[in-house]
Design a protein around this nucleic acid. Sequence first.
DNA 1: TAAAATTATACGGAAAACCGTAACAGCTAA
DNA 2: TTAGCTGTTACGGTTTTCCGTATAATTTTA
Lengths: 221, 221
Amino acid sequence: MLEKVLVAEDHQNSSKAVTKIIEELAIPLCHYVYYCDDAFTRLKNELNSGRPYDLLVTDISFIEDHRTQQLKSGVELIIAAREIQPQLKVIIFSGEDRTAKIQSYFKDLKVDGYVQKGRTDAIELEKAVEAVAKGQVYMPPGIREKINPSHSHQFTNYDVTVLSLLAEGKKLQEIPDLLVKLNISPSGKSSMEKRLNHIKTVLDFNKNEQLIAFCKDMGII
Amino acid sequence: MLEKVLVAEDHQNSSKAVTKIIEELAIPLCHYVYYCDDAFTRLKNELNSGRPYDLLVTDISFIEDHRTQQLKSGVELIIAAREIQPQLKVIIFSGEDRTAKIQSYFKDLKVDGYVQKGRTDAIELEKAVEAVAKGQVYMPPGIREKINPSHSHQFTNYDVTVLSLLAEGKKLQEIPDLLVKLNISPSGKSSMEKRLNHIKTVLDFNKNEQLIAFCKDMGII
DNA sequence: TAAAATTATACGGAAAACCGTAACAGCTAA
DNA sequence: TTAGCTGTTACGGTTTTCCGTATAATTTTA
């Protein structure tokens, strides 16, 4: 059972509402903070004093203000927190709606839940907390299907690098040199072309412009 | 002075907070609704009964749910509202951070204020309401400068059309035909190329991919 | 360890995009 | 009216991309 929860959320309105939901779920202790650094300090202190938090509920984007922060986003906070307390449960509470981003939170950050801010966030957050309390992973409705539809392509690191270079205005023929310098393989022009062609075939695209637009929409680059 | 305010916001958390701020500004009457259609009905009814609202505070994106709506976004709501009550003051309260979008709200919708959801939204919303009460226009800090930096280009309808076609994977050489069908001028390939070149020169880009990426980031297409 | 399969790269012709030049139309002002 | 300006379009040469094929390198498999 979850007994001690920390909420990191800079959105004045949301944080109180989140806390209220947590309290209604009969969780004894719930604190909230506005800054990532404060969150990390708390996690560390409570861990050291032998009474660690069970769950972290955090936003992703924290608007910058006068206070300079070490940790500038929820992603950095999660990574830092998991370093000192690997078994900490994490639920992300964010407005992000780009599938690729959400997917990467589960895949790369191994978070336990994701709730998208919106009309039904209160209900969903409740479900997410309950699921996580049972040791389950909570995904928003529809995401599981979107993550692997038939016409889809798993973008690798290599793909992202090449596409980013393209989006920066690099010519196809100068990219091989850049890849060599970055120590990325395969670096040959043909291999790169082949890869790009493969992606475009799978997604049924015919031009690089279209692919770039798609990646921007999905948040891949 | 503002005496009667309507808040349209589907975000359970925010709407109450917004209402609270409005009430603290000593505005006698403040109602809130979760759906665009409800907002429009209220505006219409109160207008007909001779006690119209002075100010509408609305979000842009309303998440869809089981209730089918005529008006699906804040933009549609604002247009519909201004049709029946042209002098209605409008403040947008949204998470949108893409400069081009915010710019178009002021330019095309002629809204009186924009407040971005974030850490300081409560303070900003207060300022915005006060400014609008005095008949002023409230823009978020920094936007005025971003709207017209030296290396900037005012994208026209024509530009957006051509760039959208490009982003859809259309070949440069098939676009002239499409433009003719859409009855858009100039439709010649040369004119189009010239225009694209001009944009790329101004923005210091060298490839269409780069331009598409930029437009996606700015929310232009 | 050799054969087979997969992956990386090189090459070259075809297609498309890029870019400068020039012709043409419409408009303005002396 | 005519010279000048602006905007549209056509044309053609150069560069870049696209794409199929062939060869080389690497990994897998028997």
